[in-house]
């Protein structure tokens, strides 16, 4: 344990922000981390942590980002244009939301709901000038390489490109091209990026930010397909968890949904409290 642990961070959609609270708690408890493996928004948070930045400021920045861009994110929280019953379904399932948004005559030609322009400026500002050697903890971002059809860990690539691949949720943002690779986020493949980890990464500590499976009975075609997608994701997560040496499950954030960006501060503080409690139990 002297080298530290490989920390695995996941969480679907906005729920990745819970990693802020988690990392604050780990920092306070002086847990030694040899490598961070993350995907989705957790990869952004992980990068900020790896640079030694103040995570309270990261929370403020995210809150500000979502407030500034709210009008572009109309689909993420307001779910405008959807019937009430579908809105409830979309709130519960990221997969359903993406399919519902992309599944209509006009949109079936679209590759993505949001453009990269929305986030590129902020990413450049935060990470554009950062060289890999400036990271105090190595950061591996998990993504799906569409050209090979495999989950892959990005460890050497330029940080901004790595992070873009981490948040390129299929259907939400366009895929990211890095050299020969065409990449999307692995979040929808598995909430926890454990697939590519090996024995050399042990001890592996996983922070599970669970999603509640949609409790509603699937009725329409898209609901059925999205539900199947979720079931498969849950099964894969269950399989991959056997690789972990230690799992900290943040059950208290289960109730937050994937798109609740207005609840960022609450999500972060609940995650931190829970992580403090779990680490307290361990020590």
């Amino acid at each position: 344990m002297s080298e530290g642990v490989t920390l695995v961070l996941g969480g679907l959609g906005i729920k990745g922000e819970a990693s802020i609270g988690t990392l604050q708690s780990l920092r306070q408890h002086k847990v030694k981390i040899k490598k961070i493996v993350a995907t989705g928004i957790s990869s952004l948070v992980g990068a900020q942590f790896a640079l030694g930045r103040d995570l309270d400021l990261v929370t403020d920045r995210l809150v500000r980002f979502f407030a500034e861009h709210e009008r572009y994110l109309w689909g993420l929280e307001e779910l405008g244009g959807l019937l009430w019953s579908r809105r409830r379904r979309a709130a519960g399932s990221f997969s359903y939301f993406l399919r519902e948004r992309l599944f209509c005559r006009a949109n079936l030609k679209r590759l993505n709901i949001l453009p990269w322009d929305l986030v590129e400026g902020d990413l450049e500002e935060s990470f554009g000038s950062i060289a890999a050697c400036q990271l105090k903890v190595p950061l591996a971002v998990s993504a799906i390489d569409l050209t090979r059809g495999k989950e892959t860990l990005l460890e050497e690539e330029e940080l901004v490109e790595r992070l873009k691949a981490g948040i390129a949720f299929p259907g939400l943002f366009p895929p990211v091209r890095i050299g020969e690779k065409e990449l999307v986020s692995s979040s929808l493949y598995c909430e926890l990026p454990l697939g590519s980890l090996t024995e050399a990464d042990r001890p592996i500590v996983v922070i599970d930010i669970p999603s509640a499976l949609s409790a509603q009975r699937p009725r329409s075609l898209i609901e059925v397909i999205a539900h199947v997608d979720e079931l498969r994701g849950a099964a894969i997560k269950q399989k991959f968890l056997s690789k972990a040496d230690r799992v900290f499950c943040l059950e208290v954030v289960k109730g937050f949904w994937w798109g609740s960006y207005r609840q960022t501060p609450q999500l972060v503080s609940r995650a931190r409290e829970e992580m403090d409690k779990l680490l307290g139990l361990v020590s």
Binding site: L102, K109, I144, L146, G149, P170, G195, R232
Partner: peptide, 26 residues
């Protein structure tokens, strides 16, 4: 697994296909 895609829906199905493949291997 179908690797070509034209729209976001195809991409979602692609990722879903990869999940199926992983579970089959299991």
């Amino acid at each position: 697994v179908e690797t070509s895609y034209r729209n976001g829906f195809d991409l979602l199905n692609y990722v879903d296909g990869l999940k199926g493949r992983e579970l089959t291997q299991w």
